[in-house]
Write a protein that binds this DNA or RNA. Structure first.
Lengths: 145, 145
DNA sequence: GGACAACTCGACCCTAACGTCAGCGTAGGT
DNA sequence: ACCTACGCTGACGTTAGGGTCGAGTTGTCC
């Protein structure tokens, strides 16, 4: 008699309500709603009473978003990228259209790699800071050199 | 005839005004002022007309702050840490006082290392994302598998 | 067919860490 | 005296959510 599997296991084609989704991807309800407001994802539908309903694709999408976050993309940037991905995923696309989309994707790749390298720089900056902290903490006495 | 070397080279004991400082450390004027508001640093003085004046120590301090930022410390946390550092730097400190301060510094070290490891995790998440993006970009046709 | 707990809704205000703008005063050179 | 670059305060705007509210919705148990 399961109609929507809201609080249990799930097979293909099931829908989840927001709390379920939030828990699965490790975001707050508020955040998921906010992402919707920002145009990052839409629920596949609503219950009669207005509860949001999501499918597995939405969960995938949210996990993808979570992966982008460390790179410091703004929500607006993520929206653009996701839209682009969606466009590329539409079936039956003219070859030149597809090529154009893929070119645009290429610039995103470059941007992402740039951000990745600044992230790596930040790690080394952070490492040097932590190293310095260690030194401060181990300098036992007030006596200089 | 140089009185304060504001727009040129500088030797020991010189003071700088905010634009100079900002440029040297790579922060905006607004940010430097905001850090003051947040209690992270104070100018060593002001001109008669009210211009902030900083010394080399302030510049060092700002550079240190910049190193902390990638670790995701809040300004409040940085303030605490800087205050602690200042206390440790005061000369003629009783041995037990110093020990207590150093213990507190130890917890900061732990916290910083924790943050550093989450930062490293973020790098690997980001790497996997960029990798996936590459794949998306290279999947030439719409034909599956 | 009512009670009930758990869940969700939209709406609102709050926060950190700045960006940006306006209007006006300063510093220092000529 | 005047010019130009520089700085001041104060106020509002932005991003990415967090918290809280009263009110409505679901599924379940009797």
């Amino acid at each position: 008699m399961r109609r929507n599997v809201s609080r249990s296991d799930a097979a293909r084609g099931d829908v989840y309500q927001i709390g379920d989704v939030a828990e699965r991807v490790g975001l707050s309800l508020r955040t998921v709603r906010y992402y919707e407001e920002a145009g990052l994802l839409m629920p596949v539908g609503r219950t009669v009473g207005g509860f949001r309903l999501y499918d597995v694709d939405a969960i995938e999408r949210l996990l993808l978003i979570r992966k982008m976050k460390p790179l410091g993309f703004t929500l607006e940037e993520m929206r653009s990228l996701l839209v682009l991905r969606d466009e590329l995923a539409t079936p039956g696309l003219a070859a030149d259209t597809r090529a154009a989309l893929q070119e645009r994707l290429g610039t995103w790749v470059l941007l992402a790699e740039e951000k990745l390298s600044t992230l790596r720089e930040q790690v080394s900056v952070a490492e040097s800071f932590v190293g310095g902290l260690h030194d401060d903490a181990e300098r036992t006495g007030g006596d200089a050199v």
